[in-house]
Design a protein around this nucleic acid. Structure first.
Lengths: 262, 262
DNA sequence: CTCTGGATGTCGCTA
DNA sequence: TAGCGACGTCCAGAG
């Protein structure tokens, strides 16, 4: 690993800094610059940011992120870059990041760079996420009774003309059921999504299916709209589903252990 | 301004690092840590990230951002924190960030901190954004002819039962017109939004208004759905509107200059 | 506080 | 490549 840590930063002139950073960009190192700058962006939208202190990050894949000292979101950014280059223009160090498709350009004009460092990070870590919508879908696929007694799920992520139905099944009376899942509070938008699928199914099959919106909670207007459109809803808490699964897993593991021991 | 730049980093032990960072957190400085760590998150969802090199940022308002070396988005984060603290636990430095509402916790366990720095950034810069939807709304409010000859806009952002209508007007025949704007390609979702507003208006007034979706482009299914629902659409390019405005501004400025000179 | 809709949203999946 | 929907989306604005 290589770490740049300058001991006499104030003795550096712009030319030395730019050369160092050019090398770091070429080496695809992670680069962090703290400095006073202005920023222009032009692309799908346009923005101008006047002078102030910012944190500028160039990631190893060339992504550019510019943070103000406060707030969470970056003020300007470039998720990927076809060109990322730094150079001296007059008395300023200018960082240019170009992205094609959509064509967008971010320019950072540094009045002063207070400090910078570059570093080759090695990260082979594994990122695992639980409790997203696919978790919810899988858990309910295995336990349709949690939605309704006697419900039989036939298909997960059933592809239809536009988009896909989260869960498609048949109720105890043999009626088709279209289920839309939300892992967070369901809004009117989710109701329309469900309604869409129901309409699409009717158009294709001439059979009117039931439509059920499944979520941990619902906005008032969501429930109103469900009523108006003749749709149903079930309150299902993802976290409860999850603990259920964990219990099962533990039991399963115990069983495996028992069998291994036997 | 205060900048920590350690010249003999390898001589630092965890206790010194933690004390330094605690002070920096208390001072609400921007903190950057580069180190090898694992990360746990639990809240609306859950995640685990195994060992690897990462960039950890604590912003001056306490926001936490954890970046892997590649990609654009942070792997874990906390937009705001009620608690952000760092301490030694065993041989590890542990950073804990707690957020209430929603209740979420991020823990970073550092196996090794390669380097860190903290800095008080001062940023009074002004951020101006052009070409967003409100720009489009304002421009079309001033130039309704660009949507349709004889159209008269009565209200911008007309509040209705739920949500708001971008532009509400009356056409040359005195018929009410509901206009939904999209600054990017309009999808089926936008059509449903418009349809909603139209339905809502009908329910309230018993008058069937026209509904026009205005966007620079439309997906095929958006246009199909517009047709089915008896809605209309107009192709309007925001960037062209913008250059129109710029021309006007230039003329206006010239006029002012002329009058000033005269 | 909840609800709604925009965003330079970004990202991943599918036809 | 376009379309579509999820996201720990985040965020501002309104009631």
């Amino acid at each position: 690993m290589f770490l740049f840590l300058n001991k006499d930063f104030n003795k550096l002139n712009n030319e030395i800094i730019v050369n160092e950073l050019k090398k770091a960009i070429a080496m695809k190192e992670l680069i962090i610059i703290i400095g006073n700058c202005t920023v222009d962006y032009i692309g799908r939208s346009e923005s101008k940011l006047t002078e102030g202190d910012r944190l500028v990050i160039i990631k190893q894949n060339g992504a550019l992120i510019i943070h103000r000292p406060d707030g969470y979101l970056p003020v300007n950014w470039q998720p990927e870059t076809s060109v990322i280059e730094i150079k001296n223009i007059g008395d300023k160090i200018v960082l240019t990041a170009v992205r094609n498709q959509p064509r967008e350009i971010v320019n950072v004009y540094f009045n002063k760079i207070y400090n910078y460092l570059h570093y080759k990070l090695i990260d082979h870590g594994e990122f695992v996420k639980y409790l997203d919508e696919s978790t919810m879908r899988d858990l309910l696929f295995e336990n349709p009774d949690l939605i309704e007694k006697g419900l039989r799920i036939i298909e997960k992520e059933k592809q239809i003309e536009y988009g896909s139905i989260d869960l498609f099944g048949v109720d105890k009376n043999g009626k088709p059921v279209i289920i839309e899942l939300k892992r967070v509070t369901a809004t009117r938008e989710a109701v329309h999504q469900l309604f869409n699928y129901v309409k699409n199914y009717m158009n294709k099959t001439s059979v009117k299916p039931r439509g059920i919106l499944v979520a941990p909670s619902f906005t008032v207007s969501a429930i109103e709209t469900l009523g108006k459109l003749g749709l149903e809803w079930r309150e299902v808490d993802l976290r409860k589903l999850w603990s259920l699964k964990k219990e099962k897993d533990v039991k399963h593991e115990s069983l495996l252990r028992f069998m291994g021991d036997g």
